[in-house]
């Protein structure tokens, strides 16, 4: 919003700066490039190589020498892709991701708006709680949620059972993977809301007062003010948060793994879990790498739209 006033100026300025300073620009990105290439370049290269190689002479052969492990082209990919289990898992993961990202962002936005409305003492308390939630490792929070939803000893069943007409005693949340994944969703969303809410809250506080005032004077309802002023203002931030959430939730592992005590049933498999049980966990590193590459391809596919947006954020329009 504030940028509109200056954007004309920028259009003139940018190219000049660009020409004059691009040597400096390369110098500036050099350390980052060294890290990207030096630290992730080779492992990424290795993952791609592994996905193209056959693993036929013992589990460590791949790592000893590339010479003894023949390349098999895309055969690993056709094998994974022709397994119907993979597609079931992928579909489940996509649904899980959409639900979790949607819920996290919606709830995060709600909490952020609320933080803007409440008195200072209430804000301090809620923010403190959110910070603590954020700081707890997901392995620990998953264990806690597992207890809360335990069939015989869980607080949730105990509380629901108090409600007249509801009989939840001994209800097993994990017998049906849909219910079980709902519990997983609860942990994931619970853990994701703090970052989103605190970030969005910070964003909202920066919306210039005059813009909101103007909207109100024009007779905009609170909902219209939200959709026409707040949302567009927060858009770049939302895109970053959404991208991050998609990457996390698509690759979700800890919350499912520990919720099922390291032995997730077929109905709980998402691609992260699938990659582990088919690949890394059973020392089939080539299969694991293949699924890993497919995960990246899927993420890129899902996010084509957002990638365009990401390129734009921070650019002079």
């Amino acid at each position: 919003m504030t940028a509109t006033g200056t954007s004309t100026g920028r259009r003139v300025v940018s190219p000049r700066i660009g020409r004059r300073g691009s040597g400096l620009a390369y110098l500036l990105i050099l350390p980052a490039v060294v890290v990207l290439v030096g630290v992730t370049g080779w492992p990424l290269y290795k993952i791609i190589m592994l996905s193209l190689q056959r693993q036929d002479s013992g589990k460590f052969a791949l790592f000893h020498s590339a010479g003894t492990t023949p390349f098999v082209g895309l055969r690993n990919f056709t094998r994974v892709l022709s397994d119907s289990a993979f597609w079931t898992v992928l579909e489940r993961t996509l649904v899980f991701t959409v639900l979790n990202v949607g819920l996290s962002l919606a709830l995060g936005m709600g909490v952020a708006l609320l933080l803007n409305r409440v008195s200072k003492w209430a804000r301090v308390i809620l923010v403190a709680v959110l910070l603590f939630v954020w700081a707890v490792p997901s392995t620990v929070s998953t264990q806690i949620f597992y207890w809360l939803f335990s069939n015989q000893y869980g607080v949730v069943n105990w509380l629901l059972d108090r409600v007249p007409g509801v009989h939840m005693r001994g209800h097993d949340w994990f017998a049906d993977p849909h219910q079980g994944l709902a519990v997983v969703t609860a942990v994931v969303v619970w853990g994701a809301v703090p970052l989103i809410a605190i970030s969005l809250h910070a964003g909202i506080t920066q919306i210039p007062r005059d813009v909101l005032e103007a909207a109100r004077v024009d007779g905009a309802s609170p909902w219209q003010a939200f959709t026409r002023v707040t949302l567009p203002f927060l858009r770049p931030l939302l895109i970053i948060l959404m991208t991050l959430s998609v990457i996390w939730d698509f690759g979700v592992f800890n919350q499912i793994w520990f919720m099922r005590n390291g032995h997730p049933e077929p109905g709980y498999q998402t691609v992260g879990i699938y990659m582990y049980s088919e690949g890394v966990g059973s020392s089939h590193y080539n299969t694991g790498a293949t699924i890993g590459v497919l995960m990246m391809v899927c993420l890129l596919g899902v996010m084509v739209f957002y990638i365009r947006q990401l390129f734009r954020i921070g650019d002079a329009e």
């Binding site: 990424l44 592992f253 990659m275 993420l299």
Partner: peptide, 11 residues
């Protein structure tokens, strides 16, 4: 950011 950390571990 998209590289799954589990696949990255051993390389």
């Amino acid at each position: 950011q998209m590289i799954p950390l589990l696949a990255l571990t051993i390389p």
